[in-house]
Design a protein around this nucleic acid. Sequence first.
DNA 1: GATGAATGAGCATTCATTCAT
DNA 2: CATGAATGAATGCTCATTCAT
Lengths: 195, 195, 195, 195
Amino acid sequence: MLIMLHKQTKKNLLLQAGLDIFYEKGFECTTIDDIVGRATCGKGTFYRYFQSKEALFDELENSFKELLGNELEINCPDHLPVRDYLTETIRTVVKVFKMHQKLGLIKFARDQQLRGQKHETCSKQNMPSILHLENFLNKSIAAKNIRKLNVEAMTALVVGAAHFYLFRAFKLGIPFTEGELEDTVEIILNGVLPS
Amino acid sequence: MLIMLHKQTKKNLLLQAGLDIFYEKGFECTTIDDIVGRATCGKGTFYRYFQSKEALFDELENSFKELLGNELEINCPDHLPVRDYLTETIRTVVKVFKMHQKLGLIKFARDQQLRGQKHETCSKQNMPSILHLENFLNKSIAAKNIRKLNVEAMTALVVGAAHFYLFRAFKLGIPFTEGELEDTVEIILNGVLPS
Amino acid sequence: MLIMLHKQTKKNLLLQAGLDIFYEKGFECTTIDDIVGRATCGKGTFYRYFQSKEALFDELENSFKELLGNELEINCPDHLPVRDYLTETIRTVVKVFKMHQKLGLIKFARDQQLRGQKHETCSKQNMPSILHLENFLNKSIAAKNIRKLNVEAMTALVVGAAHFYLFRAFKLGIPFTEGELEDTVEIILNGVLPS
Amino acid sequence: MLIMLHKQTKKNLLLQAGLDIFYEKGFECTTIDDIVGRATCGKGTFYRYFQSKEALFDELENSFKELLGNELEINCPDHLPVRDYLTETIRTVVKVFKMHQKLGLIKFARDQQLRGQKHETCSKQNMPSILHLENFLNKSIAAKNIRKLNVEAMTALVVGAAHFYLFRAFKLGIPFTEGELEDTVEIILNGVLPS
DNA sequence: GATGAATGAGCATTCATTCAT
DNA sequence: CATGAATGAATGCTCATTCAT
């Protein structure tokens, strides 16, 4: 499922098992026993490769962040017309989160997690989608392709909508359709008012 | 902080302590000992008033849901012009979540929580902001005040943006400004493209 | 149900409630809350009348012991013929235990209870049925109405059989019949061998 | 004390400690801490081997039941003359209960325990001594070795007497003598009346 | 390297008992 | 007399982590 997780090493078995069970039961409710049970290896082996449950999660998280950054760079080059760029950005974010749904949603859930122990260290630097988008919007304003409005407001709408669809897909089980994507971008471009 | 939590009864002390500590450490990491310690009462007292940690949380949650519903009804009557309605909806959601920030964010975090044990029972019925908004949008389309676009797409943008601002305020510490609110609504109404 | 428990004083309500719930859930599993709940009075009231759960039980137990002693004295006078005496003894023991089934069985269960806290203080002095019977058997041997056999052996058979029937009635739900009683005494008198 | 409990594995230490402490304080009053304290191991170790206190008890109980069944089969074959059979049955029951006194008495106490939670599931199937005896008595009646009397009455006398002696030995500290055994069987065979 | 038995701090929950009203 | 809110020691159970093999 994850990039680079193909070699059936003990470590990869543990990463995969962790991913699966975090997804099924949530981070907090997953025990080391669950993980080593699914990975069919001893508990000692877990601690050979990871210092803690937290450490395994971080490794999963980093590989996801890298993945999302790569996808956005490939699918959403700056030179795209605005409509295409926005469409692709939302599509990519939703797609990557869905393709790697398990990891994406665990990550999403944990990001929301309150300052439990250390996770207050969050910043935009960790959010490829936001950085990428802001960069594009600033350029587009400079090129007068879009109106000179607050970049944060646009970002809020694009990223917020993507998260809404993910949230809805996950929590309410309602899938994200192409029609919705088109309408979403159409509204961002031209608004809801009758012309 | 919470409405009606003024009487210094043991129960209210426990509710307040629960709210504070859930906010500080997250629901999962909060222990009954934490709560009764802060409320300066015995552990037995906790169980006199709440069947479990879950039960205390539910009580907090319900009071929040009620509060948000009431605020939306008061601040966002259907007869408002579209621009005002959307502005007020985003403002109210952000305001209520912020005014009752602790509770709002705990709730938010738990909503995102993966299907731990029972929380898959989430539905739109539990989300006053979404229901209220969809209702208004449908009426506005019928009245031809807005274009006949996918209601979900509009909802995604409005609710998604509100959540984005909250998330940003909480995780990145960046406050939500009136300017951003205006631009957000402006984009939803007229889009980002130059006219 | 219990003698002298007719006046609806708080104390009697508590005794009755204790009896009922000990019977339903056993002594160990009965809580003070259970008792005061059924007696519809406050917990403080319980402690006004009884020092502990143990104390309430002891009071119930004593009233039972007195009752059994009285019944044996009335129903099994020494001058009865052997067959009648034995029949009446077994019948009375079973009857009193059954009539006051709740108390009898709780007592029975607790007697068997291992030396939990103090109940090692058990002795024949506390067992009216055994004392009464031994006394009769000794007299009957002296009068040559029965063979000169070990009194304990006879006691073992009579008391053991009575307890067996009670145990069976209670644990297996099989009632005690007159036919069984007659045959039991017949065996004690004449044995099982063909004459 | 228990068969097969010779290997000093942690599990056997726990079983032995459980047996000892159940005997000393009764099942209800024994805590897991008591057991792991005596077995000198951590609480976690207890739960590695037993799901609960109940589970440890069941394991002890099953080994006892098996033991009693085996002993009865060896010592009391059907072809014995009636007197020998009855003598051996009482002797074996008393002996096995005494040899494994702790377990026997704990079991005995728990059997008497009131319908706590589940123990109403008691039936004759769980009582090897009763089944074995009834079977023999029916055959003996058919063979006209004993009178055609109620089998339950005979069972009541034999089993009741054995339990009486055990009870007496345990609660009153009076040992069971061969003379009593002989007289007990003599009475069952020929009765107490002078011939 | 790999294992899994052993550990014990930590947690939710229960319940007998006290005491202010 | 009667009450029931308050208490906290005690208990069953979990689970991350260690370490001898």
